[in-house]
Every structure is written in structure tokens, then in C-alpha cells.
Simulated scan of single mutants.
Amino acid sequence: MEALEFAAIGAAGIAAGGINAVVGSGTLITFPTLLALGYPAVVANVSNNIGLVPGALSAVHGYRRELKGQRNRLIRWGAGSFLGGLTGALLLLALPDKTFDAVVPVLIIIACVLLLLQPRLNRWMKERQSSGRRQDGGVPMWCGVLGTGVYGGYFGAAQGVLLMGLFGSFLQDDLQRLNAAKNVLSAIVNGVAAVVFIAVADVDWAVAGVIAAGSILGGALGARVGRRLSPTVLRGVIITVGVTAAILMTVR
């Protein structure tokens, strides 16, 4: 790996780690970078996924204060993320890339619309439901987390946008707490997919190592910046990145 190539991948890893902590679309930086440098698509996707796992864990640690009181629902959601991530990783190895390419941009746009309407949805749901409303979203939420996990294990770009849109439609909670939960679920999906890829896929370990180092730094920095953003600003960042992701994946 040449010095300029090393620097480019490292910088992409830092940016991706920071964006994943705040939003969850870091793959849209690292994956195109690897393609531009000439890496095969599947090798780039697999190596990128493995490299971003340490950054995801760094983001989880950075949001540890916001995770307090969420243990029970994260255990339930985590099971869905684990199963979804495993399924998505296996699909990546079995199906052509075009299978999800036509569907994913639509899913991202729907997620952005849900997130944009989150305050209104929360008010409407609060008026219609009793004060004993479940804080984990029940079965519909679990199924949504499972589906998002399948997508995340397959490709992963904008997985966080989908999760935040899902949270916005089913839950009534502080956006920073939901962002912390998003980081945990994304880490589970990426982690289980990484195990599958390590076991059976072709991995470029030099690329994965450089991205890992950059994503750890980016994840820590992103967690600090993300916590200081107001809910309105954070929502705007998520929607902007989500729309950009949909456009990039459409023209890719």
C-alpha cells in the first residue's frame, strides 16, 4: 500500500467513524474510496465492514452515558440485530449486488421522511395511546430492527438512518438516547457480519487495519460532537446524510 493510498484510506476511516457515531452512513465514504482506488467491490465491502467495527465500538463507548436505563430493550433489539446481521452477511456472499441496489434508496428516503415527521408522529401517538405505551416499540419495532439488520449485514450504508427513522416512528424518547441505542445495534450488526466475512470471505487485512485505526479515532470524536448537537440539528444532519446516501446509491 503506497503512502498516498494509505493516507486516503485512513482519512476516509476517520470521517466514516465520526459520521457513524452521529448518523450511521460512514460506509458511503470508505466504500467509494476503496472502489476509486481499484479494489474489487466485494473485497472492498467486506474489508470496509471489518475495519469499521472498532469505530462502532468506540462510538458506543462515547455514548455510554446515554445508554443508561436502556439495557432491557437493547437486549431485545440486539437479538433482532444479531439475526438480521447474520442473514444479511450470508446474503452478501450468495446474491448479486444489484438485488438490494434497487430497493435501498427507497428505504432510506422513507426513513428520512419518518425522521422528519418524528415530532408530529410522537404527538399523534401520544394522543392515541395510553400512558403505558411500551418503551421498546413491541413486536413491530423488533421486526423493523431485524429487517434493518439484514440490510446492514448486506451493505451497511445508512443503516443508522434507517434505525433512527424506525425509532422516530415507534418510540417517544430523547434523540440522543436513541442515537446511543442506534450505535449499539449497528455495532452488533457489523460485528456479526465481520465474523462471517472473516470466516469465509476474501479480506484485505491491510485495508481493514487502516480503516479500523481511523474509525476508532473518528468514532471517539464523533461521539463528542454528536452529544453536543441539539435534537433539531442532529435530525437535520441525519436527514441530509440520508438523502445524500440515497442519491449516491442510485447513481452508483
Results as ranks from 00 to 15, higher is better:
residue 204 D to N: 11
residue 193 A to K: 03
residue 211 I to P: 09
residue 247 I to V: 15
residue 211 I to S: 08
residue 248 L to Q: 10
residue 62 G to N: 10
residue 83 L to A: 15
residue 27 T to Q: 03
residue 210 V to L: 13
residue 23 V to R: 00
residue 94 A to G: 07
residue 215 S to N: 09
residue 102 A to V: 12
residue 67 L to K: 02
residue 46 V to W: 00
residue 186 S to H: 00
residue 47 S to I: 14
residue 73 R to F: 12
residue 55 G to W: 06
residue 168 G to R: 03
residue 181 A to H: 00
residue 59 A to F: 05
residue 155 F to E: 01
residue 69 G to L: 10
residue 95 L to D: 00
residue 235 R to F: 06
residue 211 I to D: 05
residue 202 D to W: 00
residue 120 R to M: 09
residue 105 P to A: 06
residue 236 G to I: 03
residue 93 L to D: 11
residue 200 V to R: 10
residue 224 R to G: 13
residue 138 G to A: 11
residue 131 S to Y: 03
residue 90 L to F: 10
residue 39 Y to A: 14
residue 76 R to F: 14
residue 9 I to Y: 02
residue 75 I to V: 13
residue 116 L to Q: 01
residue 11 A to C: 14
residue 38 G to A: 09
residue 90 L to T: 09
residue 115 L to H: 03
residue 155 F to K: 01
residue 156 G to P: 04
residue 52 L to D: 04
residue 57 L to V: 08
residue 126 K to Q: 13
residue 135 Q to A: 11
residue 144 G to L: 14
residue 212 A to F: 07
residue 2 E to I: 14
residue 184 V to F: 09
residue 44 A to H: 05
residue 164 M to S: 10
residue 160 G to W: 01
residue 107 L to Q: 01
residue 201 A to V: 13
residue 29 I to C: 05
residue 58 S to C: 14
